[in-house]
Design a protein around this nucleic acid. Sequence first.
DNA 1: GTGAAAGCGCTAACAT
DNA 2: ATGTTAGCGCTTTCAC
Lengths: 366, 366
Amino acid sequence: MHPLKFGQVENVFNKSFQTRVSGVPHKTSQRLSIIDIARDAGVSPATVSRAFNRPDLLKADTLQRIKAVSREHGFRPNRVGSSLRSGSTRTLGLVLPTLRNPVFGECFEGAEQYAHAHGYSVMVASTGYAPVTEADAVQSLIDHQVDGLILTLGNPARSATLRLLAGQDLPYVLAYNESSTHPFVSVDNAAAASDMVSLLAARGHRRIAIVSGPLTASDRARRRLAGARGQARKLGLEEVLHLPMASHTAADSDKLRELLSAPRKARAPTALFCSNDLLAASVISCLRGLGLSVPTDISVCGFDGMTFAGLMVPPLTTIEQPSHDIGARACASLLACLQGETPPSLRLAHRLISGGTIAAATSAAS
Amino acid sequence: MHPLKFGQVENVFNKSFQTRVSGVPHKTSQRLSIIDIARDAGVSPATVSRAFNRPDLLKADTLQRIKAVSREHGFRPNRVGSSLRSGSTRTLGLVLPTLRNPVFGECFEGAEQYAHAHGYSVMVASTGYAPVTEADAVQSLIDHQVDGLILTLGNPARSATLRLLAGQDLPYVLAYNESSTHPFVSVDNAAAASDMVSLLAARGHRRIAIVSGPLTASDRARRRLAGARGQARKLGLEEVLHLPMASHTAADSDKLRELLSAPRKARAPTALFCSNDLLAASVISCLRGLGLSVPTDISVCGFDGMTFAGLMVPPLTTIEQPSHDIGARACASLLACLQGETPPSLRLAHRLISGGTIAAATSAAS
DNA sequence: GTGAAAGCGCTAACAT
DNA sequence: ATGTTAGCGCTTTCAC
C-alpha cells in the first residue's frame, strides 16, 4: 500500500553512507534525525534538540557547529517526533463556515499571520454552514492533536459541536459568534444592526426588511435581526420584516418579487438590510432582474464590509467588521488560553460604511 | 512553561482509576492510549490498532468489542503517534496566493473535500504573492511532514520555492500554474485570453489594454498577456498595451487616468482586459471615479469567474475557471503521485461568461 | 486471527 | 553547558 518502500530503503543506505563518509552529498534526499546530526557535530542528541529549541542554553561555539552541520545536510527537526514527545503540536485549528466568502479568508489570514509570528501553525476547515460538517471538522482537528481551536459556529448556544468539545479539555475561542459562556472575539452584532437601522431611519425609511440565510445556521444573523428590531421599535418605525432565504450567500428572486411586487405595494419595505455582503450583492442583482434599480427604486445594505463591497457600483452601504483583526485577536486569545490565562471576550469596533446603495425613502410614508 | 501540568497529573490518576473500576465516567477528560483500550477490551495493543486501520483482519466479535470500549471512553487514536510510526501524516499541504480572493477559497474547498473523501486532511498556507513568504510556507509545510503539496506559485519556472523542493523527495503538483516540467492542473491561460480577445475584436475593439499585477509575481498573468497578444496579432488588431499595477487586487487610479485621459485620447484603448476579476472590479470602480462608466464609455473584462462577478451590476464579462475542480483534481493528482503514479497534467475547460461590461467599440476605428 | 517487541524522532528529567 | 536515559502513542514485522 505504501508506495515509497523503495525510496525508504534507499534512504537508509544513504544515511549510513553519509555517516561513514564525511562528504556532504547535498541532494541525496535524506531522512536524517537529530541523532545523525549529533554524531556529525560531536555532541549528544539532546544538545542538538536544544540548538533548535533553547539555543540560548548552548555555548555559542557548539551552537554554531550544530547549525552548520544541520545546514550542510539540509536537516530540519521532525515536528511529528517533537509533537509526540512534547505533547504539543504547536498547531491551532480554525473552523469557518466557508472560504468562498472572502471575509472569512481575511479572518484566516489574520489568524495565520498572528500564529506564525508566535511559532504556531494553523489548520483550517470549512463547514459549509452544515452542523454535521462542523462537528466532523472539529473532530478531525482534535484527531490532529491541535493545541486549541478558533471556531465560528452556526449556533454557539447549543450544537453537537459544543457537546463534542465539552468532553475534551481543549481550549477554544469563538470568532464572530457572541457567547455568554465562552471567550469570543466579534463585533457587537446587535449594536451594529441597530446603527444601520438608525441610518435608514434618518434617510426616511420606515418599512425595513431584513434579508438573511436560515437563522438556525447563524446566530449572527439572529442577533442582527434582534438588534434591528429593537432599534426600529425605539425609533417608532414599522415592525421590521424578516425574509429568510434558503442560502446565506444567494438570494431567492421569487421571494423578493413576492415581497415587493405584491398586491399591496404600498406596504412593501423601502429598504432591504441583508445579513451579509454576499447576500446583499445577490439581492441587488436579483432586484435588477426584477427591473428595480438600487438605490433609485429601493435601498439595500449589507453587513461584513468585505473589500469587494467598496468596489461595487455604486459601493455597497454596509457595516464593516475588522475580519483580519478578528482572526488575529482570536488567535491571540487562544494563545493566552494556552498560557493558562482566561482571556476576556472582545467586541471589536464595527464601522458603518456609507456607500451608495441607500437613498432617501421615496414612497410617501404610511 | 507548559501550562497543563496539573491537568496532566489529574489525568494520570483518572487513567489508572478507570482501568481498575469498570464504570465509564463519561466526561473525565482522559488521554487514553491504545494500550488502555487494549487492556479494557482484553486484547493486545496491536489488535486495537488493527481495529482502526485494518478492521477486515479482525474477527467480527473482537472488532465489536474494541469499538464498543473505544466509544464508551470516547477514545480516538492519536494521529501524531500514528504518523511518527507509519511515516505518513495523511496530510497534504496547499499553498495559495491569498484567501482574500474567493477564487482561491473555492480551490481550497475543492481540495479539502476531495482530500477528506480519501482520508486525507489539508493544511493551507497563503503567500500574499511574496516569493519569500512562499518559500517559508512550503518549508513550514515540509516541517509538518505533509505527504505532498499542491502549489500555486508566482513563477513555476524559477523560484526559491522550487529550489527548496528540489532538495526533498516530496511529491507536488501545481494548481493554476502551467509547467513543462511538472504535473499541473489549470486552464489553458493563453487560449482563454485569446478567446476573450476574439470576443472583444468581434465587438469592434481594436485597441485593447491588459491590466495586471506585477508580472514577476504571476506567470498566469504573463501567459494571459502572451495569449492576448498572440490573438491580437492574428486578428490584425493594434498591439496590445500592458498596464501593470502594483497589486494583483487593486487598480491604481492614477495609472488609469494617465492611460485614458491622456493627450491623445483617440489612441486610448477602448477595452481593458484585467488579469483577474478582483482587479477588474477595482478598475471599474476607479473608472467610475474618473467619470467613466462601464461599458458605455469603455469596456472592461476580467478573468477567474468568481461567483461575485455574476452579481455585479452589470455582471462582469469574464473567463470562468473551474476553481473548485482545479482544487479537487490537483488533490486527485497528488494522491496519484502518492500511489507512485505519474499523473498527467490537466488543462480543464474554461468558459467565457458574457456579462454586461463589454459594449461595441464606440470611437471610430483608427 | 492475534500477540510480543522493537522503534519512528524527539524532548524532558535528571545527572554531571 | 552538556550528556544519559526513558518513553510519548502508535504500527509493524515476526511469531504463534
